[in-house]
Simulated assay, not measured.
Amino acid sequence: MTKTALIIGVSGQDGAYLAQFLLTKGYTVWGSSRDAEGARFGNLDRLGIKDRINLISISPEDFRSVLVGLDQSSAQEVYFLAGQTSVGLSFQTPAETMLSNSQGMLNLLEAIRFQNRSLRVFHAGSSETFGDVGAEPAAETTLPHPRSPYAVSKSAATMLTANYREAYGLFACSGILFNHESPLRPQRFVTQKIIQGAHAIAKGRQDRLTLGRLDIARDWGWAPEYVEAMWLMLQCDTPQDFIIATGETNSLQSFVELAFAAHDLDWRDYVETSDSFSRPSDIAHSAANPSAIKAALGWQATSKMPDVVRKMTAACT
């Protein structure tokens, strides 16, 4: 039988790539945004799949809206990818961030429990929950140490998912996603800002690129690979949380250097830093140990940070 999946938050980077992936698997795909009639769904258009998605409106903070969406889609798998995704913005809108990320996931879990539905749920967790891990890469058992309202909201949603799994027997799991990029990233994300900035400078359309700290280090992967890990997690016999990452950490300066080198430019001639991008608290070093998902599901990231830079640069126009 053809499986049906509902992607709550289909318009974002991960939602679009996941929809594309599920279509290749023969799924009937439903996708939601807060206002399906008014949304543009540019990422779905960019991938050429918008007409193949059943688009509906779901506001995750509205319990009734979630109930209606579950009834309308009759999905066997639900992927919760909605919410406020910017760490920096979360310091300016902490209440909205908590509501969209934590309350939204709670409403989904409670709706499933309330209706006694037999379906599988994936929650998109975040590496931000671990905070600054130092020398020891984070594993699934690493204690949370959130350093932003965004990280707190994601920590709460991840804990809620585990609680409903243990308390009510729901097939609910969290993929703890480390940084993953693609050409679908908005330019408010620093990786896309760097890629587009280097391209614009190379084309003579821009003179300088201003960034924040360059000494921070992250584990950067390729988003289209990460959505496969999401899907694999819902094909397991039992639900389990997994870290989704490459296992390699690089500095932002290294990312910048490669982005400019792709245009035969020396980044030091064009990049300046400003304290205006600083946050009340930030993570200096983020690192992951993704060995558990490889052992259990056979998934392993094949694109590392240099590959991510190369692919994003190739997509520039």
Rank of each mutant, 00 (worst) to 15 (best):
Q187K: 10
A202R: 06
A217I: 10
A172S: 01
S153D: 05
S148V: 03
A151I: 06
I194H: 00
Y164N: 06
Q192W: 06
P146Y: 07
E181G: 09
A217L: 09
L177H: 07
L211M: 01
R165C: 04
K203Y: 09
L209N: 00
Y164Q: 05
A198D: 01
I216H: 07
R188T: 14
P146C: 08
P186M: 06
G175D: 07
I176N: 04
R208E: 02
K193C: 06
I176T: 08
L170E: 04
P146R: 12
L184S: 07
N163K: 15
L209K: 00
D215P: 04
L209D: 02
A217N: 08
L160I: 13
V152N: 02
Y168F: 15
R165H: 09
I176S: 05
R218K: 15
K154G: 05
Y150G: 04
L211E: 02
R188K: 10
T210Q: 03
L214N: 01
F171G: 04
A172Y: 01
P146K: 09
K154Y: 11
T161H: 01
D207I: 07
I194R: 01
A156K: 03
A202V: 11
N163M: 15
H199N: 10
G197K: 00
L184K: 02
D219V: 11
L177C: 12
T161F: 06
N163Q: 14
W220G: 05
S148F: 05
E181D: 14
P149I: 07
N179S: 15
N179L: 10
E181K: 08
H180I: 07
D219L: 07
E166Y: 13
T158C: 09
F189Q: 03
P144K: 13
A157P: 00
W220R: 09
S153A: 13
Q192H: 10
Q206F: 02
R205M: 14
W220Y: 14
Y164A: 07
Q187R: 11
A200I: 06
Y164S: 09
P183M: 12
Q187G: 06
I195L: 14
D207E: 15
K203C: 13
S155C: 11
G175E: 12
Q192P: 08
A198R: 01
G197I: 00
A167M: 15
C173F: 10
A200M: 12
S153Q: 03
L184A: 12
V190S: 03
Y150A: 00
P183H: 11
L214D: 03
D215I: 00
A202M: 09
A151H: 03
K154F: 06
L143D: 13
P183F: 07
I194L: 08
R218G: 03
A172I: 04
C173P: 08
